[in-house]
Design a protein around this nucleic acid. Structure first.
Lengths: 207, 207
DNA sequence: CCGCATCCTCATGGATACTG
DNA sequence: CAGTATCCATGAGGATGCGG
């Protein structure tokens, strides 16, 4: 990225992460450290030369580091400063709500992206009434949403007991979470709970 | 911006505001509605064809609108959705703290940028002990920082009485504000106040 | 002047092939 | 698997033109 030549925090930030693909790479690493192949998979559409370029750029600017992971393979992980990009990224995810309401329209979807999106959307308004673990079945490997007093977390299902399971379209799940974000004030509303084995939306969290 | 083809809030956001200069244009309009010439002035380095292109893009995507201002001249203003970019932008400004510590290094500085940066840096940690208006003299037209219970605001000096005046380098002022952001917890600390006519840093806000 | 549109050059991005 | 190398298409930057 060519310099903007402006002594402004926004401009300087964008000189580091404003290049095409950069924030999406950080998104992938916020989910967890990853190898080159994982990044290629998680960033459908990126050209391999660009990924290599960007990883070099982001490493030299101190956003991520290249290290040896389990098995001695090279992996990429965010530095503490890079991890702090979670906040602006979550802000942009919340801002995107009107853009997501259209649905996928042919865009590819990867369930792992919910690991960032759901906490970002839920964190602002939804209050946890009781600690709960909700399974999410959307077509990939099963996920779980943990809701605790300290926040929300989406991870692969670790086999523990689920309070509920939601089998639904990704857009539907995002709509639910965005509703928790945008409605909230007006009334208590249901988010995710099932009765018996059915996927019925009920109250687990309340605004 | 070419589509990423990903059903992800971050990717969709970046398709709207990820193009070079876009967020900087929004930055200028967060300070206030502006005419074409104002934007050219506030965005040193932008090519005039790019500004025209980006204004079209951002208008058609619903971030800003073109309207008739006072005197019947065309001006640009953010839509409500565009104004909501204040949050991600403030997040990026906070994230930029390590990049700003280097100082300007020849980059141009415009005092109006403090209108975004100071509230962004102060909002997270600094608590207002008493309502105050502090003058900022940094070489352009005089500014004032209003600190109230509901937040911080930097505007041109409107002639009202000042509780203090700080005449300092922009980097110094940003360092003060960033310190309020990053230290905070440890102890009560001084931010901006003068004794008599001197520019001595004392306590107006406290963490 | 202000508010752009055109033209040209060069840097960057994207797709694909290839290599240690 | 983890990238490089190559080639082409696109977009940025700069200068300039031009109507109101």
């Amino acid at each position: 990225m060519r310099s903007y030549g402006q002594y402004c925090g926004l401009a300087r930030s964008l000189e580091v992460v404003g290049d095409r693909w950069n924030l999406l790479i950080v998104r992938q690493l916020l989910i967890g450290p990853a190898r080159y192949r994982d990044l290629m998979d998680g960033l459908p559409g990126i050209a391999t030369n660009l990924l290599a370029d960007r990883l070099r750029d982001l490493e030299s600017s101190g956003v991520l580091e290249r290290r040896l992971g389990p098995g001695g393979a090279v992996e990429y992980a965010l530095t503490p400063w890079g991890s702090a990009l979670r906040q602006p990224i979550e802000s942009l995810i919340r801002w995107s709500t009107p853009l997501m309401a259209r649905g996928p329209e042919g865009d590819v979807f990867r369930p792992e992206w919910l690991a960032l999106a759901l906490p970002a959307l839920l964190a602002t308004r939804a209050k946890v009434r009781r600690v709960a673990t909700v399974g999410l079945e959307i077509g990939g490997p099963p996920l779980q949403l943990r809701a605790t007093r300290s926040g929300f977390e989406v991870t692969p299902h670790d086999g523990r007991d689920l309070d509920a399971t939601l089998r639904a379209d990704p857009a539907y799940i995002l709509g639910l979470a965005a509703g928790a974000f945008t409605l909230g004030d007006a009334r208590t509303f249901g988010l995710i709970e099932v009765e018996g084995d059915e996927s019925i939306v009920r109250t687990v969290f309340a605004a």
